[in-house]
Design a protein around this nucleic acid. Sequence first.
DNA 1: TTTTGAATTAATTCTGAATTAACATTAAAA
DNA 2: TTTTAATGTTAATTCAGAATTAATTCAAAA
Lengths: 225, 225
Amino acid sequence: MKILIIEDEQEIAQSIADYFKTNGIQCETAGNYALALNKINNYDYDCILLDLMLPDGDGFDILKELKSKNKTEGVIIISAKETLDTRIEGFNLGADDFLTKPFHLSELLVRMQALIRRKNFQGSNSIVFNEITIDIFSKTVSVNNQKLDLTKKEIDLLLFLIGNNKKVLSKGAIAEHLSGDMADMLDNHDFIYAHIKNLKKKLHAAGSGDYIKTIYGLGYKWENE
Amino acid sequence: MKILIIEDEQEIAQSIADYFKTNGIQCETAGNYALALNKINNYDYDCILLDLMLPDGDGFDILKELKSKNKTEGVIIISAKETLDTRIEGFNLGADDFLTKPFHLSELLVRMQALIRRKNFQGSNSIVFNEITIDIFSKTVSVNNQKLDLTKKEIDLLLFLIGNNKKVLSKGAIAEHLSGDMADMLDNHDFIYAHIKNLKKKLHAAGSGDYIKTIYGLGYKWENE
DNA sequence: TTTTGAATTAATTCTGAATTAACATTAAAA
DNA sequence: TTTTAATGTTAATTCAGAATTAATTCAAAA
């Protein structure tokens, strides 16, 4: 078993490598974006540990590269700051696990072993909120195990709301997220109403709770009632 | 800071509680599955210590319950027998740390503090004034943990007053702040009366103190009585 | 088929005006 | 000097209409 550690802090990379080696796992390290890309494209690994903040690039880009090349390595993101949003972005890009610094090496080892086992069993990764389950890989949403037929934007909206659990999101912020670009505040954001309504309707029809709250004058938020 | 210790061996639970209390951490204990479930569903804790083997149930089920209800408490599993399998299952179910008995209380304390630090770092941003808490992200105001339903202007006014704690704010200044534009001093500012009154009413109804003082002829100020 | 913009309707919040109450100032009376 | 009454100013309260924001509907665009 061989893993690649993409991490610019030499000390951290080395201590992970040492710990893994004593546990019978071969390791290679890449301290920057360019080197990491090179290694990924020329060698195969069982698992990749990926730090998001690199001196010469974004860890997410490496993830994109991996997926675009249809590489099958499992990826565990290790990041200093974890928000549910970055977690979801990570999962959306195909990461398998997410670990926040500082972490215990034993935990990393266990998770990595769990990941490799999961890979072998073709397990799926999902986000669960009460009766709602969102499968990150298949992009399917189900309520009480009943599959929902949501459009792309509806899933995107749902993830954005859940990912910012309890935080109020303005119409402008939602519009920007859904449309992708830096929609300026002068734009027409009325289409948000349609998406909110449709998503609410579908969730409700499937028997889900009313988690999308309207905060009059401020926006919307997702909240367990 | 308050934690819940779920552990059936009374002696162990007590010694943990004692140790933590001398370190300024409040503790509650639950000696069995049923009691633990009850406490979890009715109170909020900063962290939960979870023994896996309980006389009337499985600790993992408590973990599942926590996650399905989207509780955000950190969970440290303490278990007598650690196999890689139970570790993996624990992490997969969302535990944050895993400690094998016997352990040093000092280690438990350090890990718990690390966990809480990690949680708080990504935690919500809030302003607290005695019994009043204003969460900036969720745009919610609560008094003694009871949520208030304030309008945009009311929240705005509350923040303006608290933010200028003890400073007298003229009606004109408040009007300018609330309306956003450079309202000239000739404008009618009577609407301020309504907002002040509504805000006072809602805060008072929720059991808050009367912090909004009228300074006759000058304006209003926020002050701890 | 899905997404978006426009038009319409509904709901909520804000604000100005009117009324009433509280306070401050002044001046006359005790 | 102190009290009281008269007067004017400021604040509290109330409420209806104005303004804003959201929901809904539908048709056009992607």
